[in-house]
Amino acid sequence: MNYNWNWGILFEEPYFDWLVSGVEWTLFVSAVAWIIAFSLGSIVGVARTVDSVPIRAVATAYVELFRNIPLIVQMFLWFYVVPEMVPDDWGRWMKRDMPFPEATSAIFCLGTYTASRVAEQVRAGIESIPVGQRAAGLAMGLTTVQVYRYLLVPVGYRIIVPPLTSEFLTIFKNSSLALTIGVAELLYQARQIENYTFQGFEAFTSVTLIYLVLTMIVVALMVSVEEKTKIPGYGIQKDK
């Protein structure tokens, strides 16, 4: 390999600033997308467990549509195709006047895609609760809404903290696909540093480490969430 190493380049201006701004965009896109994914995913997930057949059908259709199309294809659809399908005025607004068109499209794409995955976890969590508990709740005179509000949702969510951690991590990693529609996130900045300096290996190594650190922080955060929310005596117990 013929390569001239230069690690110092990462700390030179403006490359250091680019990396910092890349981290900011990655965090912003992932965090907002996660809020969408978590709220929408919760609604869809709960909807997949209710008795009403039409509501279940709509929720199932949503999940199957969004999780079965490759994420990168969805990025292109949101960015290039959706503005062409809506009325011209809206399309023009989406293409020109919407704040940060690239980032907004990416956030919606990432949010709705991850929502379909979160929905599946939520459904799994709720369905893992023995059916007798639901029956018991109803027998005590709780309404269906109350059964969900006080019983199924609180217990179900506690069970799915570990798989939700994975989804939360994945959204950070998937946010790198936003570069394909021009969002200046972390990986984009690494490429840009490479384009300007041709020190690609240094740039990509640093970005690898930054992603690793970000995801480790998320893991630590979610472990503490898991600790705080666990129900003593319920679910899988750690060996004492």
Binding site: N2, Y3, F198, G200
Partner: peptide, 8 residues
Amino acid sequence: RIPLIANG
């Protein structure tokens, strides 16, 4: 193109 040439 440049990394692919550089790494052979």
